[in-house]
Write a protein that binds this DNA or RNA. Structure first.
Lengths: 247, 247
DNA sequence: CGGTTATTTGACCGACTTCAACTGCAGTGG
DNA sequence: CCACTGCAGTTGAAGTCGGTCAAATAACCG
């Protein structure tokens, strides 16, 4: 069985943090009861929804979003297959962000009560889940820096470095290409840019020979240069590498 | 004894999430073994430091920061008295951000092992700590929106709304004024602006009669207008209100 | 095909930055 | 007491990055 298969990416990620027993592994798999298929652009969870369910991305790409009153939109986080959000009892009763599928995706909606029961039975899973959450917040902090202090070109390069490294970790790279059928507007919403400027930034990266991006997907042609432009240091993602792959 | 007294702000925040027994309360207080006094501008923790200690702000203001190679600086979060960071075992071995005192402050450096022992003895404290962490990440998400999609004026207004609401929750307001002896550069680093533009934005808010800001502190003259400018909705901070104060 | 949506391109505009000078204030030392 | 110093804040002018508007392709989809 392939460890990078979609339904197991979550397990693989947890295993990055903690070794799991067979009982723990099967208990985790039991969480994925009913995968839901959502089309690209669909709202998985809306602002104001109760925060009593967790969402696990199984396939595809899901984004956390916030939208201002006049329509300005910001993507706060990208959820890859295996990423679980809202897995802990929240201090807020209702969600203040939205979850939207960026591509056709499948997700599992898991009642928090089931997760609570799980970690009660297997306390070590609690640690693994917390580490998942901490990793998500480390990424969120890097995004603040990205939109706050990096130029559009730097931020775009950094974002692509981060996303591809995370995609590598869940085995999404196929033949040196990443599946990447985003609207440029969506990329712009990650970086706080207009889609028009996003277009020009992408062209700049193409002209420099850093990337190849078309409807088929994304290819990183010159990763060292891309990392250099973005000032990317993947240390904050090191926990994504399998323990075996780490020194 | 005043519940808003610095050394108890942390306890007060935990109590917002969960009622605590007397034994739990005294166990939490035992964590604060040796308060350390740090002068304004001092580095409490540097990039690369091991992530095996938590930091609890007791008095003053501490900031999470990231700095780019060429010196551009971004403040990622403001820690008020009672805020605990890095309380959980991290998936990263070393920290990728810094902690700096924005004012003369006192903090407690707490080995994560002590916290781990505490939550093992009192499992309910784990829930309270997790909720603390989730609240911090909710604030971080709002910051992404702030720097990504809000204008300088909107972002500044929103930041001031957030900070003052959080300061209210820990009783930092004195006689309608908030202690606020920041450099304008520090505010600018929260919002991803230059200090010069920060200055002009503050003047705009003064001219509109929203705020009074000088060396003595900050006064909110027109909170409704400030909230309107910033598009501020304090729902994500509702958990900070004491349970008694909530419906 | 035609209708719709995404990308691309150009021209112009505005928010914010940079550079530079100046003010005001607190501390320091003569 | 007053120069001297240093630093934060303020102000002005010029420049840049990125936004907005508008229109022309180019890709998708029934």
């Amino acid at each position: 069985m392939n460890a990078a298969a979609p339904s197991h990416a979550f397990l693989a990620k947890l295993t990055c943090h903690t070794d799991l027993s067979e009982a723990e592994r099967s208990a985790v798999m039991d969480l994925i009861s009913r995968p839901i298929s959502v089309p690209a652009g669909a709202v998985v969870a809306a602002v104001g929804d109760p925060l009593d369910v967790a969402t696990l991305t199984l396939q595809g790409l899901v984004a956390r979003t916030k939208v201002l009153a006049d329509g300005r939109r910001q993507i706060l986080a990208i959820l890859l297959p295996g990423d679980l959000v809202d897995g802990h009892a929240s201090p807020m009763p209702r969600r203040d962000d939205g979850l939207e599928a960026l591509e056709t995706s499948t997700v599992a909606i898991i009642p928090q009560s089931r997760i609570a029961a799980l970690v009660k039975a297997f306390p070590r899973l609690q640690d693994a889940l917390i580490k998942e959450t901490l990793l998500e917040t480390a990424i969120a902090r890097e995004w603040v820096l990205n939109v706050g202090r990096r130029t559009a070109l730097e931020g775009c390069a950094h974002l692509l470095c981060e996303l591809t490294q995370r995609m590598d970790a869940v085995g999404l790279k196929l033949d040196e290409r990443y599946p990447f059928k985003w609207r440029q507007q969506q990329l712009a919403d990650c970086l706080g840019l207009s889609s028009i400027h996003m277009n020009r930034v992408l062209q700049a990266l193409r002209k420099r020979g850093c990337i190849k991006l078309d409807r088929e997907g994304l290819e990183i042609l010159d990763r060292p240069q891309l990392c250099k432009i973005g000032g990317f240091d993947g240390a904050y993602l090191a926990a994504l590498a399998s323990p075996a792959a780490r020194p």
